[in-house]
């Protein structure tokens, strides 16, 4: 051991010496360049350290999924149990349920969200009265900036018997429906409230694409005798096709993102059957029931599949829409 480390140091000294003797360093311009550029590394250092601690160390922490994790022993010294956590996870009746719920909820939200956003953008694009358009846009964007705690609080009040929905039902002479306690209604509630919060905001990207369409194209279509609907069909929609394809590709990366914050603030044990998703399951298993290994295994399962999906989605977005994140 001692000998090895001495050799190591000697090698190091040699490398260091060689580096100092690099002829280019004698050149004052190069030396000035290096003197100026060390600061680039210094600027990155704080972020790299934070990433190491708060992103990469937790990534290493996925080893918990293969351990009988003991908080006192940590990631490094907890005993290994092989695939036992995964076996327990896959054997649990909750597992197929949360996978199914996650996929169904995420896909219904993504599909409805995008279709409504596109339709809204096309309708907004036909409005010429700018103050009206802007006011309505700002009204529809607003829920995006409110937290799910606030929105769920408002929703629970609306859906209560003395709330707005209760009053409407009363006026119509209907039996009051317990939306948040019904396995039939829970998913539709998630889809609709997701539209309430995000549809307006998602429209922004399509509006921007619509604004980028050359007005001459509309003009030319009109001269050729295209009416309003034909211009939407043959000019506006093809004009935003790249954007539509791009978002469709990127959305593929999100099919396991059913929306923890939304579900967690709206669900309760009655609707676990239709509303419990991977993220809420991980939370309850890990932080409520202290089944760290099983929870970490479920989390790793999601992260790993999510990783593959995101990589595929970026590949597709690059190929079909020329999209690069950097």
């Amino acid at each position: 051991m001692v000998a090895e480390s001495q050799i190591g140091r000697k090698d190091g000294e040699q490398r260091w010496g060689a580096w100092l003797r690099v002829p280019a360093l004698a050149d004052p311009k190069t030396r000035a360049y290096i003197l100026r550029n060390w600061s680039l590394y210094a600027m990155l250092a704080p972020t790299l350290i934070l990433l190491a601690i708060f992103a990469y160390y937790p990534m290493y922490g996925v080893v918990m999924a293969f351990q009988n994790y003991n908080p006192g022993l940590g990631f490094v010294r907890s005993p290994w149990v092989g695939l036992a956590n995964f076996e327990r996870l896959f054997a649990s009746p909750a597992f197929p349920r949360v996978i199914g719920n996650t996929l169904i909820i995420a896909v219904s939200k993504l599909v409805t969200g995008q279709i409504v956003a596109i339709a809204l953008a096309l309708l907004f694009n036909e409005i010429r009265h700018v103050p009206f358009k802007r006011t309505m846009q700002n009204l529809l964007y607003m829920p995006h900036f409110l937290s799910w705690v606030v929105l769920a609080g408002i929703l629970m009040d609306i859906l209560s018997p003395m709330g707005l929905a209760g009053k409407v039902q009363q006026a119509l002479g209907m039996e009051p429906i317990i939306f948040l306690g019904s396995n039939f209604w829970f998913r539709p509630v998630l889809v609709v409230t997701n539209l309430w919060k995000e549809a307006g905001w998602s429209m922004i990207i399509y509006l921007a694409a619509l604004l980028a369409i050359d007005p001459d194209l509309y003009e030319a279509a009109a001269i050729d005798g295209a009416d309003r609907f034909q211009r939407i069909r043959y000019v506006a929609i093809p004009g935003i096709m790249t954007t539509i394809i791009l978002l469709a590709c990127l959305n593929l990366g999100d099919v396991l993102q059913a929306g923890f914050e939304q579900v967690f603030n709206l669900y309760n044990p009655t609707v676990y059957e239709t509303g419990d998703i991977i993220d809420t399951y991980v939370y309850r298993m890990g932080l409520v029931q202290a089944q760290f290994g099983v929870a970490a295994a479920a989390g790793l399962f999601k992260s790993a599949i999510g990783f593959v999906l995101i990589v595929i989605s970026y590949r597709l977005a690059d190929r079909y829409a020329g999209y690069r994140i950097f």
Binding site: F54, Y283, G286, L287, G306
Partner: peptide
């Protein structure tokens, strides 16, 4: 190193433990 954090994450439980 930065972009990889967008693609993969340790997940809630390891993050909490850290």
């Amino acid at each position: 190193l930065l972009v990889f954090t967008l693609l993969f994450e340790g997940g809630l439980i390891p993050y909490f433990m850290v």
